[in-house]
Nucleic acid binder design. Structure first.
Length: 566
RNA sequence: UGCCCGAUGGUGUAAUUGGCAACACGUCUGACUCUGGAUCAGAAAAGUCCAGGUUCGAACCCUGGUCGGGCAACCA
């Protein structure tokens, strides 16, 4: 009978977060005739980040769950900060995450005329007035949280004068900052936002959509609720810092609404991620100071950065799902983000062989000049993925870390007189090694057992370790960029006396130029993702070229050996 | 020292709205493994910010504190 019983079984069992509870109560009481309409309202003044992703998943997710709609609305009421470039990137990011907004994108700027008319209405009702005072004066008169404000001398202006002045403001007859339109509410309200808030300011600036038509622009508070109202939004979800704005949101709506319908603002806690910063201001600073290479630098928590890093839309949606929605401040361990990423990539990406820090391994009893093609599974987690053939020869590259002259106990890899399995090929034993003039390991010499070929069916010796390798004669060179967290502090922006930039991780990017990858990777396209066997997940960077491959490390594999040695 | 909001294992989120505090990540064992990955089995870890009260029974209701966050842009 109820909507509840229409939900799929597993959804039904899962407990509802507080916003879903509100929606279901509204549906039960038929508040909006069962209608659910949300919106994601970014200001186009920067790139979207993982925190926005939470909001996107929430707004679109809730709409989808209850058979409703979700609008994309650009909150573009401040022409001085907003740009078309950001509009484009935001649309791209939302689509990439896998969401489809209802209709065309909406813009608060589409409502400028309507908003203006409502402002005139408020003046006529005697609840808005033009203030001629300079900004500093108005700010002074506002008082403090603990001391009431005082009323502006222009507060009692006649309606006619207000109308004329506001008209003149609109016509552009006054310079920036010379006058504002204010709501006449209560200068002694304990809520600072109710102390005659500014509704309109004069801005002789070019707007990215309306050009130079408007000389006055509405403030957020005078635009947002009305925009929601115009679009028929039922549940207007925003972050906690807008909680104190809610009385004002409702007050403006009270002035203009004649219908029973009205949107409701509901606040939830924004996402905080450990070891990173999330404010647009800080992110912009990282870009402008050249600490990262741009908004889409793979170390950035922006959607664009995560995408370039190799994150999948599904992993971000799962993440958003697992972190939940509540009202208490939170700091999510970045490890959770990495967990959902690996969870997704493990199931979906093909395994390939790549040696990041190569050292030569010569198999002395393998025929010189011979190459054989060994078969390797593409993805043991996905039976559909098939297999491929990879060349194997007398000279190979293996990982420097996979050989130790004097290994500790529990080291399962290659060492003098020790045997390991070369993945998909043979068991080899190291017999001797050479050092270069700097004392660095240069070549390992070993012997293989022809009887031990993978898949040959003969009974195999037990070896402790399996190594990845690349055939030296056919290996392809590649550059690999190892990314790590940008900050070494768990909460870089959370220190009163220190700047987040004090905690930068000097090793957040390590570039490896001499990597050897299996020949099939020569065909890899930008954006392709792989698991480099035993190392981690990697993707082809946007800067990669046909004969100058560049891979980004998306996230390393879990590594118990590394943990043991910590 | 005004107003608003919040407080549950290390982290995050639950608790059928007053009925044995659960799930996930992380941590630690062990099994398995031609990825020290994955998978599987198990363990430790909170007695719900504090103090009172109501109740047969309180994480949940009441009172008073404590701590944390937000609010004084012509930003959103």
């Amino acid at each position: 009978m109820s909507l509840l019983s229409d939900l799929p079984r597993d959804e039904e069992k899962r407990s509802l977060h507080f916003i879903e509870q509100i929606i279901e109560e509204d549906n039960l009481s038929n508040k909006h005739q069962g209608r659910v309409h949300t919106r994601f309202p970014p200001e186009p003044n920067g790139y979207l980040h993982i925190g926005h992703a939470k909001s996107i998943c929430l707004n679109f997710g809730v709409a989808e769950k209850y058979g409703g709609k979700c609008n994309l609305r650009f909150d573009d009421t401040n022409p001085e900060k907003e740009e078309e470039e950001y509009v484009q990137s935001i649309m791209e990011d939302v689509r990439w995450l896998g969401f489809q907004w209802d209709n065309e994108p909406y813009y608060a700027s589409d409502y400028f005329q309507q908003l203006y008319e409502w402002a005139v209405l408020l003046i006529k009702k005697g609840v808005a007035y033009v203030d001629d005072q300079p900004q500093e004066m108005i700010s002074q008169q506002r008082g403090t949280p603990t001391r009431p404000g005082i009323e502006s001398p222009f507060r009692t202006r006649s309606i006619e004068e207000n109308l004329h002045l506001f008209e003149a403001m609109k016509r552009g007859e006054f310079p920036n900052g010379s006058r504002v339109l204010r709501a006449k509410i209560d200068m002694s309200s304990p809520n600072m936002h109710m102390r005659d808030p500014v509704m309109y300011r004069i801005l002789h600036a070019e707007h990215h959509r309306t050009g130079n038509i408007w000389k006055i622009y509405p403030m957020y508070d005078f635009a947002h609720g009305q925009s929601d109202y115009i679009e028929g939004i039922t549940h207007s979800l925003c972050t906690l810092e807008f909680e104190v704005h809610r009385p004002l949101y409702d007050w403006f709506l009270d002035q203009i609404i004649e219908t029973e319908y009205r949107p409701r603002q509901i606040e939830f806690a924004r996402l905080n991620l450990s070891y990173t910063v999330m404010s647009k201001r800080k992110l912009l600073e990282l870009v402008q100071k050249g600490i990262v290479k741009g908004w889409d630098d793979p170390r950035m928590p922006t959607i664009a950065g995560l995408r370039r890093r190799g994150y999948t839309p599904a992993s971000i949606r799962n993440f958003s799902d697992r972190i939940g929605v509540a009202k208490r401040d939170n700091v999510i361990d970045v490890g959770l983000l990495e967990f959902v990423l690996r969870e997704d990539l493990n199931k979906t990406t093909n395994r390939v062989m790549a040696v990041l820090n190569p050292v030569r391994l010569v198999i002395t009893n393998y025929p010189e000049g011979q190459t054989e093609w060994v078969e390797l599974e593409n993805n043991p987690e996905d039976t559909e993925s098939g297999s491929r053939h990879v060349p194997f020869g007398r000279e190979l590259y293996i990982e420097k870390d996979d050989f130790m002259i004097d290994p500790p106990k529990k080291y399962f890899r290659l060492a003098p007189d020790r045997e390991v399995r070369l993945k998909g090929a043979y068991v080899v034993k190291a017999v001797r090694y050479e050092l270069d003039d700097k004392g660095e390991l240069s070549t390992i010499y070993g012997v293989y057992d022809p009887e031990t070929k993978s898949g040959s069916g003969t009974k195999q010796p037990k070896v402790k370790g399996t190594l990845h390798w690349v055939d030296a004669s056919s290996a392809v060179d590649a550059e690999v960029r190892l990314y790590d967290r940008l900050f070494m502090d768990e909460d870089p922006a959370g220190h009163k006396d220190r700047d987040a930039l004090d905690f930068l991780n000097p090793d957040s990017l390590v570039i490896l130029k001499n990597c050897k990858v299996e020949p099939s990777l020569a065909q890899a396209q930008i954006g392709d993702t792989f698991q480099f066997q035993r190392i981690g997940y990697f993707c082809v960077d946007t800067e990669s070229q046909k004969d100058a491959l560049v891979f980004n490390r998306t996230v390393p594999l879990r590594d118990n050996w590394a943990k043991l040695n910590k």
